[in-house]
């Protein structure tokens, strides 16, 4: 099945995301405060920030897995209240059901309640897209970590999401598999027009994939325990696929690492 025929079976189009004055506290621990973010339909946005700064929490809010203490989130102009069929999440762990075959794991992602005749073709098409047609009958323990993440992506796409939420999806993979997965993600984005929000620790990954990179963290000069907010937004120049060795990206890389508080040992040319 070609990606164009796959497109025809895709009901949903990319949806915009609007986050307004979002805050979240767990008891008296304040995690997020005053987060404002507008994401246009079809955009790829990367969220980066130090560990525990609330990146995943923000992502879970967009997916309706968590509800905010204050503020509001809209997807495609409609508010998010609880679990949301307009978005799909792929987690850091693939979270495959070990007793189901790869195909049957992808089927979990199909929209519930209204199973259609083309579902079988849809799943087969997605498996082809993530290059797992040969492995469709295997169980999760029989495949590699990278393959498992591809299943997880296919499952998320099976939902025909307007917004695809990726929580450090490649974090546990080895460096080379990671690069291959980044390219695969861009292919998927071309074939399945969804808005993508990806949480990552990896500045290079963020710059390679995203239209914009959002740096989350506590404002400078404040202790790390303070609630996080958006510190800066970097628009990444150039069209994808980008040159991984680009010098423009190298400058942005230094800027972002600096924002993360990582010593870059960079000799400023200014």
């Amino acid at each position: 099945m070609s990606s164009s025929s796959l497109r025809r079976t895709t009901a949903a189009d990319a949806l915009s995301v609007s986050i307004r004055d979002l805050s979240r506290s767990f008891g008296d621990r304040h995690v997020l405060r005053a987060v404002d973010l507008e994401i246009t339909a079809g955009e790829i946005v990367a969220l980066i920030g130090p560990s525990g700064c609330g990146k995943s929490t923000l992502l879970r809010h967009i997916g309706g897995l968590d509800s905010p203490s204050g503020g509001a989130i809209d997807i495609g102009g409609e508010p998010v209240v609880g679990l949301d069929a307009r978005s799909a999440v792929a987690f850091q762990e693939p979270r495959l059901l070990p007793w189901r075959s790869i195909t049957r794991n992808v089927e979990v992602g199909l929209p519930r309640g209204k199973r259609k005749g083309d579902d079988r073709g849809r799943v087969a098409g997605l498996l082809e897209l993530v290059k797992l047609t040969e492995s469709a009958h295997l169980r999760p323990r029989e495949i590699s970590g990278g393959m498992a993440q591809r299943v997880s992506l296919a499952r998320a796409l099976a939902r025909r999401p307007g917004v695809l939420l990726l929580d450090e999806p490649f974090g546990a993979l080895d460096a080379l598999t990671r690069l291959a997965m980044q390219d695969l993600l861009l292919e998927l984005h071309a074939a399945e027009p969804a808005t993508i929000v990806i949480v990552t620790h990896d500045v290079d990954e963020a710059l390679y994939l995203a239209d914009r990179v959002i740096l989350l963290g506590s404002p400078k000069g404040q202790p790390a325990a303070e609630p996080a907010s958006i510190l800066s937004t970097v628009s990444v120049p150039g069209v994808r696929p980008r040159d991984r060795g680009s010098s423009d990206l190298a400058e942005l890389r230094v800027e972002l690492l600096d924002g993360l508080g990582v010593p870059t040992h960079h000799l400023s040319t200014h």
Binding site: G63, L65, L83, A85, A88, V89, F91, E93, R95, L97, V108, G109, P111, R112, R155, R159
Partner: peptide, 16 residues
């Protein structure tokens, strides 16, 4: 618990 959350996030609840 991760698998349970996965099921929930894909719209499954109760007996399903």
């Amino acid at each position: 618990a991760h698998l349970v959350e996965l099921g929930r996030s894909y719209g499954y609840s109760g007996t399903a």
